[in-house]
């Protein structure tokens, strides 16, 4: 147990920068320093954001969880694994602001370290982790795979398109919960496997979206021009088509982050998420559920509140942005 604690502590110093970049990405996707008009674009983007009250509320909720996750070690004197056998299943108190779970672990600490796994770090093994949360990685990998498939099948068309699309259709026909169950039961519980599951489930939808965008953009003059210049097809796909398709892809990705968190919580609740004793919101609810009727609802309540508020915040933000940007157009 000592080893794990040390890893988490030593991990904290470096990754706040990574999170900041990410937050910028979400608010201001077009942010690009090399272009002259980027100040103007940034201000236009922010004004879109602040024009919608829902988006602001969403942003505040999301920022709360992101900062709690980043600063987790500073916000609680406990580690998420520290057990206090004398105080199991307690309500909120001065020592434990949100109470303790059935093993006497501090719920506030488990909650914010749980947010960390979702939003800030992807634990690969006991001591190795990547910046960027498990849910974010899931969406990112799905985006890479789905975008590539969509571009290739939309741009080349023909039998390649037919094969890829029929396969994705078959995947979409399979109930998502079944995919989750089988994938996770086969791969076992770990953060990397959660990323794989989210990727497999997310890829078909992204690929279809990108394909339909590609079919449209392929007919534009600038693509024709690039083809006449004799550009490599992959250059055309990734440098000509993809940048012009980014708007809908980004909005879709934001909604997918919300869904990835939803999926991660659900997997955890079914016992298919992160292996115990990791602080995982879904599995905390699953464990705490057993003690509700015995009179200690806190262990189930707080992670439920956490995941509910985070997904609602993300959706408010995405919806608000989408509505306002559509109004501007």
């Amino acid at each position: 147990m000592n080893e794990t604690n040390e890893t988490i502590d030593s991990a904290t110093g470096t990754h706040s920068a990574a999170v900041d970049t990410h937050a910028n990405d979400v608010i201001q996707p077009e942010h690009d320093v090399t272009r002259p008009g980027h100040w103007h674009r940034l201000r236009a983007g922010l004004s879109i954001l602040f024009a919608s009250r829902a988006a602001v509320v969403g942003l505040i909720i999301v920022l709360f969880w992101v900062s709690a996750a980043v600063l987790a070690p500073l916000l609680t004197p406990y580690t998420p694994l520290e057990q206090d056998w004398k105080a199991p299943n307690q309500g909120p108190s001065m020592a434990h602001p949100l109470g303790t779970d059935e093993l006497g672990r501090d719920l506030w600490s488990r909650l914010i370290y749980g947010a960390r796994v979702v939003l800030v770090i992807l634990p690969i093994s006991e001591s190795v982790w990547l910046p960027g949360g498990t849910a974010l990685w899931g969406v990112f990998v799905a985006l890479v795979v789905g975008t590539t498939l969509g571009l290739v099948s939309g741009y080349f068309g023909g039998w390649l398109d037919e094969v890829v699309m029929r396969l994705l259709d078959a995947m979409m026909a399979v109930p998502i919960i079944l995919l989750f169950l089988i994938i996770m039961a086969a791969l076992g519980a770990s953060a990397v496997n959660v990323v794989i599951a989210i990727t497999i489930v997310g890829t078909p939808g992204i690929a279809r979206l990108v394909r339909s965008l590609t079919l449209d953009i392929r007919t534009r003059e600038y693509v024709r021009a690039a083809e006449t210049r004799g550009e490599n097809p992959f250059y055309i796909m990734f440098a000509e088509i993809l940048p012009n398709a980014r708007g809908p892809i980004i909005v879709d990705a934001m909604l997918r982050v919300g869904y990835a968190i939803f999926a991660m919580g659900t997997l955890g609740f079914l016992g298919l998420g992160l292996p115990p004793p990791s602080p995982d919101w879904g599995s905390m609810v699953a464990k705490g559920r057993e003690f509700i009727l015995e009179g200690s609802p806190w262990a189930a309540l707080w992670p439920s509140v956490a995941i509910a508020s985070l997904v609602v915040g993300l959706n408010l933000l995405a919806d608000g942005l989408r509505e306002e940007s559509m109004r501007y157009q």
Binding site: T266, F269, V311, N315
Partner: peptide, 25 residues
């Protein structure tokens, strides 16, 4: 629409826990 959005994006297990806590407990 905001109410509808909230109910549709909150995971089922969280909604279930809230209902158990409020209605049953």
């Amino acid at each position: 629409s905001v109410g509808g959005m909230m109910f549709s994006v909150i995971p089922e297990f969280a909604t279930g826990i809230f209902l158990i806590l409020i209605v049953a407990v």
